[in-house]
Design a protein around this nucleic acid. Structure first.
Lengths: 330, 330
DNA sequence: TTGAAAGCGCTAACAG
DNA sequence: CTGTTAGCGCTTTCAA
């Protein structure tokens, strides 16, 4: 199958150690020899076997990026951020998608570790990481996104509580009193914190939190649609606004509301979270809490890179600021 | 850093070859020994080093998937298809995003080959693959998506010509005569074929193809917006419908039209291509040519898998059928 | 400046 | 059933 160092050494009439040195740019090689070797290697189309390199150098120049849902544009946006930061430093990133499934998450983690990635960036599906216990000791350096951790790992988080608080407060300022919370994966950090922000805003404005109007399921459009549909059917429906924990959910909520022939925002106002690209479409114009997605990815890689280079452990948490983008659904 | 076979061999008091056998499920190991070994390995949290395994077995149980734009939901949908098919067969997939950049594409290809992936699935940015010449000989088996190739590789394609033809014919049947074509990356197969389908439909209906109304740029929203904006500004604007080569483009086109206070579909009708999730939102309701995205991914992997297993080379091309989904923009 | 040789962690003959 | 050993492709001492 593949061309090895030996092949090109034979062709060049030198030992393969010399070829190795020439190709990896060691200084102690005769310039002429080096040039000759490089030329031959190119002509023959030699590609070093990164596997073997990794085996001896104990580094693979790859990182793993685990995300829960590639079909939610929020995550691809982050992925682009890490990918580009990584490529700049010569790292390849392996993107893995878990569908919010703990088992798949575990499986990928295993694979990635076995593949000896140098580092890991995770946006875990769940706050509990007991299923990830085994990695604690033997895994490579890692950075979490949107997940608070209590050990020595770093995490990049958005101030979810604040974002949610702003969103709900905005609704309250618009005169809404009966505001629903529609959330995603119950135990995810994102969900828990955004719910907290919601409650905080309600309480500080002396508004009651009615549990009939606090519902959660998955972070996707179907869930939003389904939950809203059910609420709308409730006997004494009286909601005038909903804060949904991400934009995909919001899109589902909107759909359900439309089907009831209610008007947005006149009858029901909506605020989302994330500010995915599609939230700004002229037909959608979703009011939402914006996160610096691309930047989060970039920072995540940069922090990871520092760790790999053994630099100071830095801050444990990097907290980014959300910002409310007011459009036409509120 | 890591725990090796030897460590657990020492602990178990056997040779490390035995450990290897026990753990990889060879039959010729004493049941009791095997159980003991497995227990110890688990307790110690042993993870085999896939790098080393790959080195000796010359297979890595990984495949590479290269896509041009992770932020266009079309590709994540395909990605999910391959990922899930892959995981079912015990393969991990490494997703790489090129941003339609040939150099990045080349770079990833290199990395992936160096990492000894067992196979490759590509949705190339460009019809020309001269920049990929070097892989022809030494690369692992590969499958192309949406790209016609003339060598021995397989490719999964949608009948783009037919899809485009249907789309345009639908517009013609609605009475439109002045129909624009707004395309993406000029040299991509998708663009070229969809353009061909457009022309074919026009010609077969005795409608002239006006080059002022055949424009292309990138396969994204901004391009669609920009091109449409320009057309709208043209002195003798007379278009009544546009066929855009993908949905992202269509979204941009819609936005431009909206800003001109024209009505869709009354003043201008629009048909897209792909049927991404967002095309079906109630606010969008984009008429579009639907592709079986998830399925394409699945098939791509399955075909690749057959190749890996050395099974018959099968068909060179697998052509899938598009289907026009008529919604409210036409 | 170069070659010889050890060894990274593992699998797969080959013996026993 | 289990141990010994060669070798996957490469980098890196150590000598020459």
């Amino acid at each position: 199958m593949s061309l090895t160092l030996k092949d090109i050494a034979k062709e060049a009439g030198v030992s393969y150690a010399t070829v190795s040195r020439a190709l990896s740019g060691h200084p102690e090689v005769n310039k002429i020899t080096r040039k000759k070797i490089i030329k031959i290697a190119e002509k023959m189309g030699y590609q070093p076997n990164a596997i073997a390199q990794g085996l001896v150098k104990n580094e693979t120049k790859t990182i793993g990026l685990i995300i829960p849902d590639i079909t939610n544009p929020f995550f691809p946006a982050i992925a682009r951020g890490v990918e580009e930061a990584a490529i700049e430093k010569g790292y390849s990133t392996f993107l893995c998608n878990t569908n919010w499934n703990k088992n798949i998450e575990k499986k990928y983690l295993n694979v990635l570790i076995q593949k000896q990635v140098d580092g890991l960036i995770l946006t875990p599906s769940s706050e509990s990481t007991t299923h990830l216990k085994f990695i604690e000791e033997l895994s490579p350096p890692k950075v979490f996104i949107n997940k608070i951790i209590n050990n020595s790992d770093t995490s990049i988080i958005i101030d979810n509580i604040k974002g949610a608080y702003q969103a709900v407060e905005h609704l309250i300022n618009k005169g809404h009193k009966k505001i629903a919370y529609i959330g995603g994966e119950k135990y995810s950090t994102a969900n828990k914190e955004r719910l907290r922000g919601y409650k905080k805003a309600m309480q500080q404005n002396d508004l009651p939190v009615n549990n009939d109007y606090v519902k959660m399921k998955g972070f996707n459009r179907d869930s939003g649609y389904f939950i809203m549909k059910e609420m709308l059917l409730g006997e004494s429906f009286e909601i005038t606004a909903v804060f949904s924990a991400n934009d995909m959910l919001a899109l589902g909520v909107i759909q359900a509301i439309r089907e009831s022939n209610l008007k947005i925002p006149e009858d029901i106002a909506i605020v989302g979270f994330d500010d995915i690209e599609f939230a700004s479409l002229p037909e959608i114009q979703l009011t939402t809490v914006s996160q610096p997605k691309y930047q989060m990815g970039q920072i995540a890689f940069d922090v990871l890179y520092e760790k790999l280079k053994g630099q100071k452990a830095n801050e444990r948490r990097i907290i980014l600021e959300p910002s409310l983008v007011i459009r036409e659904t509120s």
